[in-house]
Design a protein around this nucleic acid. Structure first.
Lengths: 340, 340
DNA sequence: CTCAAAAAGAGTTGCACACCTCATTTTGCT
DNA sequence: AGCAAAATGAGGTGTGCAACTCTTTTTGAG
C-alpha cells in the first residue's frame, strides 16, 4: 500500500534518478519516458511521503503575507494570528513574512507586489479590486507563484484561491437576522460600510439590500454611508441617522468602528431597543453582545484564516489537493449564548 | 534557530545516545543526567522535527474510533467524515480504525473499550456517561493511551479531551433564537430530545429551559419528550403536542428525526408559522431551511470533528501542544442565508 | 558511419530522528 | 580493593526523498 519512488522506478522500468528528474521537473528526460513514469505513478497510486520530502528539501518555503497598514481592529487581530501561525510553521519548515502596505492605494499595493523578490514560494494579500493590482497578481501567478486573496477577493484575477467569507451571504444574513429580530413592526434600517472601494463591503451591501427589500417590506433601507472604519466618523453618521430618522429600528455596520455605533446609541438612549448587527468578534464587540447592545455578530475566524492560508500555500507549492471543507471560511453568527 | 538533537547533546555535555534515551523515555539514565538533558532542551528551545520523527519511526500510529451503531443520520455523516479523514491520514502515517458499538448500552461499550488490543496509540469514543464506561476510559488513560470523547462528554473521567460542542450553550442558543424569532407574543414551546440517557441532550435541555424561563416569560416550555431519534416517534410526539397545545408557537428538536417534525407540522398546516429550530445540517434539513419550514439549524461540523480528532490524537501521542482555537468545535448557526 | 548532444543509469550525501548493539566508564556496595 | 550493576559513549542502520555528480548508453542529424 505504501509506495516509494523505488517502486515507481521498478514499475516504470527506469532508474531512480530518472524518476527523480520527472517528479521534480528537472530537464533532460525524453517525453516518452516521462509518460512511462507518470503512468507508473498513477498505476501504483504513488504519493510522495510529505515527511520525507519536507525533510530532504533543506530549504524552507518562503511565503509573504501582505496586510493593510492602519489600526483597524480586525486587521490587527488577523496580523496577530498570522504571527502565531508563523511561530508554529517555523518548525514545519515554512517561513511566513508579514508585510504591511497601504491597501487602499491600488498603485502602491501593485508596486509592493511587483517588488517581491524572485525566489518567493507564495503570496497572500488583502487585495483591492483595482486594475493595477489585478495585473500584478496575474504577473505573479504566471511566473508560477501561488497567490491567495485574503478577506476581499479579486475574482477576475488568476489568484489560486480566496480565503475569506462570502460577503454577499454575509450581507444577506445580516438582513435576515434584522428582519426576524425586528418582527412585524414597520421602520427604517441604517447600514454603514467602511469603504465602498473595497469589494467586500460592496458585496455585503448588495446582499443586505437584496434580502431586506425582497423579504421584509415593512423595513426601509436608508442609503448606505461610508465611515472608513473610524470610530468618530461612525459615531457622527449614526447620530445624524438617528436624529434624521427617529423611526430607525435597526442598524447594520458592515465595517469597523463598532464603538462609534455603541456611543451613538447610548447617547440617544437607544442602546437597548435598537437592533444592532455588527461584524467581527473582538473583546469590545463581545462585551456589548453580552450586554445586549449588540444583538448579533457576524464573524470570520481570523485564526482559521491564518492557518488556512498557510496550509493552502504549502499545498499549492507541493501540488497537493486541498480539503475544501477544511478551508472554507464560515460566516459565524454569534449570539450571546454561543460565543467561543 | 533550528535545534537538533545534536545541539541538545552538545549543550548538555552528553552523547547523542543519552539524549535519545531521555527524549524517548528509555531506561538506564541517571536522574541527574535526565535533568541536565531536559534543562538543555528547555534552554535551547528544542522541538523535535515532526517530519524527521515520523519518518524515522517506521510504524504508523494506530488509532481507534468508536461510533454508535444504528442509522442516525448525524452519526452516519460523522462516520463518513472519519472515513475520508482515514484515507488522507494514511499517507501521514496514522491509521484510523472505525468500530461500531451499541453506544446506548453502557456495559457493552465498556466491554468494547476493554477489549481493545494492547498496542493501540489512542482512542476516540462517542461515550455514554455510565460508571462502567468511565471506568474503562480511566483504565485506558492510566495505561498511557490517549482517550478522546466525541459528541457527548464524560467530564468526570480522565479523558484527555472532548471533541464536540458545548451542549449547554447549544440549548441556550436555541432558546435565544426562538425567543427572538417569536417576538413579544405569548405561547408555548415544545422541546424534543433523543434520549435523556445521553449527556449531550440533557445539557441541551438544561440550557434551553434556563434561558427560556429566565429571559422570555411570555413563553412557556412544555415538558421535554424523548423520541430516540426516530422519525416516526418524533412525528407522533409532535402531533399530540400540537393537538394538546394549539397555542404552541415554537419547537426545538435537540435530537435526530427532524423529518418527523416536518411531517407533523405539515399535516397540521403549521409549517410556515411555527418557529422550528433543529440540529445538524443534512441534505434534508438544509432543504427545509431553504423552504422556511426550519427557521434555524444548530450544527456541529462533522468534518471538523473528524480532522480535529486525528490531529489531537497524534499531538497527544507526540507530546505536542494542541492549538486550542483550531480544535474548538463551534456551534454553527445556519440561517438560510449563510449555509456553506 | 560519425560524433556530439540528449537521455538514462548509478551512486553519493544529507536531512533529523528512532532504534539498535556493543563497548567502555562510572557507581555503589561489600 | 574488587566486582557486579548501572550509566554512558560510540557508532551503525534505516526512513523516503532532494539534489547533485559522474559515467554510460542511446539517439538523431549530417
Amino acid at each position: 500500500m505504501k509506495m516509494t519512488l523505488e517502486d515507481v522506478a521498478r514499475e516504470a522500468g527506469v532508474s531512480l534518478a530518472t524518476v527523480d528528474r520527472v517528479v521534480n521537473g528537472r530537464m533532460g528526460v525524453h517525453a516518452r519516458t516521462i509518460q512511462r513514469v507518470n503512468a507508473a505513478i498513477k498505476q501504483l497510486g504513488f504519493l510522495p511521503d510529505p515527511h520525507a520530502s519536507r525533510l530532504a528539501r533543506g530549504r524552507d518555503y518562503d511565503f509573504r503575507i501582505i496586510l493593510p497598514t492602519g489600526e483597524n481592529e480586525f486587521m490587527q487581530a488577523l496580523a496577530a494570528e498570522f504571527r502565531a501561525t508563523r511561530e508554529r510553521q517555523l518548525q514545519e519548515r515554512v517561513r511566513l513574512t508579514i508585510q504591511h502596505v497601504d491597501t487602499f492605494d491600488g498603485e502602491a499595493l501593485a508596486a509592493a507586489l511587483e517588488k517581491l523578490p524572485k525566489g518567493i514560494d507564495g503570496v497572500a494579500v488583502v487585495a483591492l479590486d483595482h486594475p493595477a493590482v489585478t495585473e500584478a497578481i496575474n504577473t505573479l501567478a504566471d511566473s508560477g507563484v501561488g497567490v491567495l486573496t485574503l478577506v476581499s477577493d479579486v475574482p477576475n484575477s488568476r489568484r489560486a484561491h480566496y480565503v475569506g467569507i462570502d460577503n454577499f451571504a454575509a450581507g444577506r444574513t445580516a438582513a435576515s437576522i434584522i428582519g426576524r429580530f425586528v418582527g412585524p413592526r414597520k421602520g427604517k434600517v441604517g447600514m454603514i460600510a467602511g469603504s465602498l472601494a473595497l469589494r467586500d463591503h460592496i458585496e455585503r451591501q448588495f446582499g443586505f439590500e437584496q434580502v431586506l427589500s425582497r423579504e421584509y417590506p415593512n423595513l426601509e433601507v436608508l442609503p448606505v454611508r461610508e465611515a472608513r472604519d473610524e470610530n468618530a466618523r461612525v459615531e457622527a453618521i449614526c447620530r445624524s441617522l438617528i436624529e434624521d430618522h427617529p423611526d430607525t429600528v435597526a442598524i447594520y455596520n458592515a465595517g469597523g468602528g463598532q464603538a462609534g455605533v455603541i456611543a451613538a446609541l447610548e447617547s440617544a438612549n437607544r442602546a437597548s431597543d435598537m437592533i444592532f448587527v455588527a461584524h467581527e468578534l473582538t473583546s469590545s464587540t463581545r462585551r456589548h453582545l453580552v450586554r445586549g447592545t449588540i444583538d448579533a455578530i457576524l464573524n470570520q475566524d481570523v485564526g482559521h484564516m491564518a492557518r488556512s492560508t498557510a496550509r493552502i500555500l504549502t499545498a499549492l507549492k507541493e501540488g497537493r489537493p486541498i480539503i475544501s471543507g477544511q478551508e472554507h471560511i464560515r460566516i459565524d453568527i454569534f449570539l450571546r449564548d454561543n460565543m467561543p
